[in-house]
């Protein structure tokens, strides 16, 4: 590549970074604006909107509700995803490709369609819209991501680890819990955090499967439809900071993992 194209690419990169970060930055600024009206210019600053948020029980409840859903659905997705990954790794059998395809299916179905399919399925099995319906749909949607992360990690595990455990008297279950699971833990932490973010951020499934109690994204959506309020800036900023911190932490733990793997 010539020098000019290189500079051009660099410019595109930075333009894109600005495109991604500036709206979020502006949103954060607005949260400190001392006016009910969202827009520029900002004449005076305040922390009132944050105070409003911390006093708003609806927001706090939605936050807690979303957290519970994220944690429970992540636990389900981690368990099933790891189980599937372990079952599908290292053996070939008739139908493996079909099962792998079905495993990854929820990740490629367009969001609105998957939400509607879950809505119908919940109705068919008699599940009321609400927390469990949302948890269920989030867990199913997140399983493919866990499977991919865990399978990738599992493929780097020498076959001899599990064999050595078996050789030393462990049945397959004990061998899994004492040797394979510790090996997979970093990948599962990374995958788990990713699932929590997906669940916490999810709008479309929570919207179609929710009952009267809104999750945080659904609450923000409702507030946005009824008009923009600076309170939303404060909520969004808190969410942004929390998710970014969690994401960074997960990224770091995953990166430490790949570094250690290459070191071995």
């Amino acid at each position: 590549m010539t020098r000019n194209t290189r500079i051009l690419m660099q410019c595109i990169y930075w333009a894109f970074v600005i495109y991604l970060l500036v709206p979020l930055f502006l949103m954060m600024l607005m949260g400190f604006k001392d006016s009910k009206f969202i827009g520029f210019p900002i004449k005076s600053w305040t922390l009132d909107w944050y105070m409003t948020v911390f006093a708003d029980t609806a927001v706090l409840q939605a936050f807690a509700y979303s957290m519970v859903i994220a944690v429970v659905s992540t636990l389900i997705a981690l368990t099933m995803g790891t189980w599937i990954a372990v079952a599908l790794t290292g053996r070939s059998f008739w139908g493996r490709a079909i099962i792998l395809g079905l495993t990854l299916l929820p990740a490629i179905i367009p969001g609105v369609i998957s939400a509607i399919a879950f809505r119908i399925a919940a109705r068919v099995v008699g599940m009321e819209p609400g927390m469990w319906a949302i948890i269920w749909s989030h867990a199913i949607h997140n399983v493919p991501f866990v499977v991919l992360v865990v399978m990738a990690r599992l493929s780097t595990m020498p076959k001899s680890y599990a064999e050595a455990a078996r050789d030393l008297g462990a049945d397959p279950i004990i061998a899994f819990f004492r040797v394979s699971l510790p090996y997979l833990t970093p990948a599962m932490i990374g995958g788990g955090v990713f699932c929590m973010l997906l669940s916490f951020d999810d709008f479309v499934r929570s919207f179609f499967l929710g009952g009267y109690e809104p999750t945080l994204p659904v609450l923000i959506f409702a507030k946005l439809r009824s008009g923009m309020s600076p309170e939303i800036n404060a909520i969004s900023t808190i969410v942004l900071v929390l998710t970014a911190l969690l994401g960074l932490w997960a990224e770091r733990s995953m990166r430490g993992l790949s570094k250690r793997a290459s070191h071995d």
């Binding site: 502006l26 951020d201 479309v204 923000i220 998710t243």
Partner: peptide, 28 residues
């Protein structure tokens, strides 16, 4: 990569809201 990744950890609705602030009639 991080500079690009961080915004994507933020949910759909929050990012749409940020876009609304950028593009509104009194937007940036």
């Amino acid at each position: 990569l991080m500079l690009l990744l961080i915004p994507f950890w933020v949910g759909e609705v929050v990012r749409i809201f940020a876009m609304m602030i950028l593009l509104g009639n009194n937007g940036a």
